[in-house]
Design a protein around this nucleic acid. Sequence first.
DNA 1: TATAATTAATTGAACGTTCAGTTAATTGTT
DNA 2: AACAATTAACTGAACGTTCAATTAATTATA
Lengths: 230, 230
Amino acid sequence: MPVAHDKMKKRLNADIQKPKIVKQFYKTILAQGFEGASVAKVAKQMQIHPSLILHYFGNKENLTLALVDYVIDAYGSLLKKFKSQDLTPEDRLERLLEALWSREYYEKIDVAGSFAVLAVSFRNEKIHHKIRELYRGLKKFLVREFTYLMDHQVVAAKDPAHMAEVVMTMTEGSRHFRRFIIEEESGDNGQIRRYNQQMMEAAWHYLTGKQKTWPTDPGFSAFPGTPFVR
Amino acid sequence: MPVAHDKMKKRLNADIQKPKIVKQFYKTILAQGFEGASVAKVAKQMQIHPSLILHYFGNKENLTLALVDYVIDAYGSLLKKFKSQDLTPEDRLERLLEALWSREYYEKIDVAGSFAVLAVSFRNEKIHHKIRELYRGLKKFLVREFTYLMDHQVVAAKDPAHMAEVVMTMTEGSRHFRRFIIEEESGDNGQIRRYNQQMMEAAWHYLTGKQKTWPTDPGFSAFPGTPFVR
DNA sequence: TATAATTAATTGAACGTTCAGTTAATTGTT
DNA sequence: AACAATTAACTGAACGTTCAATTAATTATA
């Protein structure tokens, strides 16, 4: 009969352990890249046996697919905020663009994680399909928003589907590009903040046809740069 | 005295062999991903010995750095076309946007290759720096163009550096996004063509403040640009 | 006791790298 | 033109690691 002592590890059921493994896999990818994220390393950091991971996921591909689901869930969760907000149409658009270029949004899933997943999507049709579904949902959401704002004379009368695609292109381009705009000497957050505002203003101009100088700095006052995964 | 027979393999000097290796490395990455592109696989496809690759490049990191240079060269080569063209300012802008969203441009370096390199750039400061230099050059070029076009009243009076960053964001976003807009059933070229035109029009609007409907390409004019959301 | 969670022990293949050795091409000297 | 000296291209075998995966055994929990 085993006696409980300090070092004894609690057994966790699958509902708890599986997400833990996926999150650690994600963290490992951020730190080491997809190539560097082996099952063994993930297990070691969790202090479990590598076989346990394979026990749960069968093979590495399934683990990767679970990770994609995790990334997609986190990615899409921000949209739920907009479900029932009571704002004037103009404020609504402002908030939407601020959300899309907020630090919270683009740090929710580290761009390095996105890249790893996207890179794999070129060779894995299942993953490619999952990402396409993500974008489809995002687009649907934006089309609904833009249609509403069009009815209220805030955005110009163009095809909302086109607008959605252009805005999505701009946000994804920003995720990509943000890392590379920083001047070596001056560096840091000021640049990125300026860049984000600049992109919001461009999006605003594209959508409404009007110039706008952005009033506040979104994401920075409300959320003091807390990365999502630690 | 060596007699030439069919199986005899010519010895190639470094100037020929090294670029060959880099190109095959690139091809292998496209097919197998960065993780899948081992020195051994590259060597096998070239029918040379793995050691030869290490002989030339010392280690895999150097091979990767050489690849990045190759990608960057190919990437930046299109800009040279614009060096001395004789066009009206308006045509010049039109051609520029067409070049940025041309199939030639975005197929020059397969986006899968870009992603592989970009993914590695998160973990390799040398590669990150190289890419930053690429963008710096691209930006410089665009700033010069936009300044010229501003002086000739074609683009609106904004900060040309901002404009350059926004346009670069849009092109990079397009590279990224293009793969995911395709509807499964209807598929392929018509969609991408429509998408590219749509992005060019958005860029034109952002730069000039004016609407523009892009002249349709003769080959594709049969297809009505139907957006894909249900 | 039955079942799920977890570890243990191994496997064979592939990885990047090393190093010593071989063969071809180039160069310098006569 | 001959030919040795030298350089450059290239191979082969083996190194120690790490990889994902399999199979069997053990342990905790319900």
